[in-house]
């Protein structure tokens, strides 16, 4: 009962509308990750990030807590325990900041959701001593921050995420091909996008990453209304990227739109599965733990 309540209390902070209320993106990332890990009932740093290497004599400046008291008891000398990093995973978070990502019908835009998720992932990666990089793109690559593992790198990533604004057209396939060529060392590619582009070309570009031996994790981020199409009365819709208008009667097109969306989603899902790419559809009202769990599952397979 206690465990259940504790889980409930922590996952409450994984809801996008709760996270959005915090001012600092640093806090947001920490809240998401700590809350998520606390919910898992496991120590965040246990087992997979660091391994014991050797003992060395205590030097002034070392933290007293690192002194191995058992060795002291046997030898009457101070030794400290040395650890070494288990892996050197390089992860690139590729974030779509095109105009369409600025859409929202509920609490937060798709871009905000993607930023919080990216921040959380970066926080988690760097606390596991992995290196994390960030690519922000619209119709071209706007920002490219190479992957690093230093704790200070988190601030670089978070400050970059914090100032992102939606804008511009989308060129997913071109950008992905470009990045596939640019990122030399194999690693984990995490894509956060609404994927509003030519499906075949996007899938082809994602396979390019795989071809370059990268592991690919795609978070397809959408607003709930894009999936359900809940307009009630006739409306003039304006494309947020091209600016084109279209007058529609939702009562007439809703069913076919939903069918069309389902086909669109299924095609991505099937294409990714065939290309051994992890694909997850997230709407902006989905709690962050679902995305983080997907990441962790992928991370476990990489060990």
């Amino acid at each position: 009962m206690y465990a259940h309540n504790s889980r409930k209390a922590t996952t409450r902070f994984l809801k996008p509308e709760v996270v959005a209320k915090l001012k600092s993106i640093d806090l947001k990332a920490r809240l998401v990750v700590e809350g998520f890990l606390a919910g898992l009932h496991r120590s965040p740093y246990k087992g997979f990030s660091v391994e014991f290497a050797e003992h060395r004599p205590y030097m002034p400046g070392d933290e007293p807590k690192r002194i191995d008291w058992r060795v002291y008891a046997k030898t009457d000398r101070f030794f400290v325990r040395e650890y070494e990093e288990e892996t050197n995973l390089r992860a690139y978070i590729i974030l779509d900041s095109s105009g369409s990502m600025g859409y929202k019908t509920g609490g937060i835009t798709k871009l905000e959701y993607a930023c919080y998720l990216a921040a959380s992932l970066a926080y988690l990666l760097l606390h596991q001593k992995d290196s994390a990089g960030l690519v922000v793109f619209s119709d071209r690559i706007d920002t490219y921050i190479p992957a690093r593992s230093s704790p200070a790198h988190l601030n670089v990533l978070l400050s970059q995420l914090n100032k992102l604004r939606p804008g511009g057209d989308t060129n997913l396939a071109g950008t992905f091909h470009q990045l596939a060529e640019r990122i030399k060392r194999r690693g984990l590619i995490i894509i956060l996008s609404d994927l509003w582009d030519d499906r075949a070309r996007v899938l082809s570009a994602l396979r390019h990453f795989r071809h370059r031996k990268h592991e690919v994790l795609v978070f397809h981020i959408l607003d709930p209304n894009e999936q359900k199409f809940t307009y009630r009365s006739p409306v003039v819709l304006k494309d947020m990227e091209t600016g084109q208008d279209m007058t529609i009667d939702p009562r007439v097109v809703r069913t076919e739109y939903r069918a069309s969306f389902e086909a669109f989603f299924r095609q991505f899902e099937r294409g990714c599965r065939e290309g051994l790419i992890d694909y997850h559809l997230l709407t902006t009202d989905t709690p962050f733990d679902r995305a983080l769990l997907s990441y962790l599952a992928r991370r476990q397979r990489l060990r």
Binding site: S100, M101, Y103, K110, D194, W196, D223, E226, Y231, S233, P234, V235, V236, L237, K238, D239, M240, E241, T242, Q244, D245, M246, I248, V253, Y257, S260, F261, F264
Partner: peptide, 11 residues
């Protein structure tokens, strides 16, 4: 009513 929409590809 005028409303923005992310993409008109499906529509």
């Amino acid at each position: 009513r005028h409303a923005p929409f992310p993409s008109l590809i499906l529509l």
